[in-house]
Design a protein around this nucleic acid. Structure first.
Length: 319
DNA sequence: AATTCGTGGGC
DNA sequence: TGCCCAAGAAT
């Protein structure tokens, strides 16, 4: 469970949340009983929500196929949803003390600098090289889990991407990048992904202290509760919104704002609207919104709508 | 192989 | 401010 939370997420952020997960989902069977929605709710604000759905699915497999016990071999672990090469190796080596290697972003950087390997770690060749190196190291380690954790910890705290603290590094004398002073160029950064602008026209309806949300069936925030949304490349005029949402009766634009994700620029235009229930609409008490399976973005959208409601602004734009 | 998936922190 | 990055996996 901790490794699922840690995928592409800094340790300090997981530390804040892990206690709640341990309490709510002490065993795979307990997670199955709690249900997927409960896992998504606990996951709110953590991003990459596929991990939450995969974790729940893995709990189901473990409960049904493995009698409630987490499998201890890499081969078996790899069959679990959401468990790839890294996670399988981490669980097998750290939890079950098997001599299995791991390569994450930290390990790839540490290994590249030790050898002063200038080529990319992001392609197939680079990954193969990293896994070979990691395999070699873990084979000679007394404790494979400690070796793996040590490599990651070194990368996270000392051998950082920018301005590594080489003066504090216990491997300084063995590091070829330090000898050549190439730390800042090794490994080369991953080529940036181009961002595409997407406008989310959120149709927010609030009545009797409740907001209408539905579970997103696909794409961004899949599985989470969010207002009905009309997506487009550019911002749509109110008339077009009305047409596309037909028989939606769009009444009033109340706010718009934008925020960034790694992969796209998301602009929300928030409308108060009447709309049909295509996928089931769930009416969530505003005061209970924080206890639902929602993204941070949904919280922001609803907050924006509520704020404008309070001051009764008509066609007011906020940044 | 290249994309798609969030969010918050650091510089 | 804008960009990079993070204990990656699935498609």
């Amino acid at each position: 469970m901790s490794e699922a939370l840690l995928q592409q997420t800094q340790v300090s952020r997981v530390v804040e949340r892990f206690g709640e997960f341990k309490q709510r989902f002490p065993t795979p069977a307990a997670m199955v009983k709690a249900g997927e929605r409960s896992v998504l709710q606990a996951w709110r604000g953590m991003g990459y929500y596929r991990r939450a759905r995969s974790l729940y699915a893995a709990a189901c497999v473990i409960t049904r196929i493995h009698s409630g016990r987490v499998p201890r071999t890499v081969v078996e672990l790899l069959t679990l949803p959401g468990v790839g090469r890294y996670t399988a190796g981490a669980v097998a080596s750290i939890a079950f003390e098997q001599h299995e290697p791991i390569v994450d972003g930290n390990v790839a950087r540490v290994l590249s600098r030790l050898a002063d390997r200038r080529a990319s770690v992001h392609d197939r060749l680079g990954q193969a090289w990293c896994w070979n190196q990691a395999t070699h190291l873990v084979m000679q380690a007394k404790n494979a889990g400690r070796m793996n954790e040590g490599l990651m910890e070194l990368g996270a705290t000392v051998c950082t991407p920018h301005q590594p603290k080489c003066s504090e590094c216990p491997l300084r004398a063995k590091c070829k990048s330090f000898a050549n002073q190439s730390q800042d160029r090794v490994p080369p950064p991953k080529p940036g992904l181009k961002k595409t602008a997407v406008v989310f026209h959120a149709l927010v309806q609030i009545k009797n202290g409740r907001v209408g949300l539905q579970q997103r069936p696909t794409g961004l925030w899949k599985g989470l509760l969010a207002p009905p949304v009309i997506e487009s490349a550019k911002r749509l005029p109110l008339k077009v919104i009305q047409h596309r949402a037909d028989p939606v009766k769009v009444k009033l634009e109340i706010a718009s704002f934008e925020f960034l994700t790694t992969h796209r620029r998301v602009r929300f235009v928030v409308y108060e609207a009447m709309f049909p229930s295509t996928t089931p609409m769930e009416w969530i008490r505003l005061k209970d919104l924080g206890d639902q399976a929602v993204s941070s973005a949904t919280i922001q959208v609803v907050d924006a709508a509520r704020g404008q409601h309070r001051c009764q602004a008509d066609k007011l734009q906020t940044k």
